[in-house]
Amino acid sequence: MSSYPEKLAQVLEDFSLITTRAERQAYLIELADQFSRVKVAPAVAQPPYDEAHRVPACESDAYVWAQENPDGTLTYAFDVLNPQGLSAMAVAVVLADSVNGAPLEQVASIPSDIVFDLFGKDISMGKGQGLMGIVNMVVYEAKKRLKQA
């Protein structure tokens, strides 16, 4: 876990201390409720969005944008078109809060299965894939910038 962005490592540590499903759900819902904080600004993108930003395999219609900071790191923004897509919103908030401005090498090495650290093992294959797709998109953007550098 030491190679993760520092804030992400802390979030995962927090989740590892959760012992009950209800507590996990309550925490994730609390995060999802904050989604407006990380939603893409109209100045960056407005619907209908460019399909290049759509997360493959995510049935909640999640989108990801990455904007370069002056120091070369990235700030991510998200949208989730399905108003019932709470899990996707929670993942977006976790990622925005924990990888924005983090070293690209660290972001590029985040494994998609952190989704299971957040949600536990009892999510469906389809749901898990969609959420991992959001992580993969974030990772992909970091890798792309590293290649260009």
């Binding site: 819902i29 019932q84 897509g85 709470l86 899990s87 949600f119 999510i123 389809g126």
Partner: peptide, 9 residues
């Protein structure tokens, strides 16, 4: 549901 957060939300 498929999404485990919907019912508690």
């Amino acid at each position: 549901n498929e999404d485990p957060l919907l019912y508690p939300s």
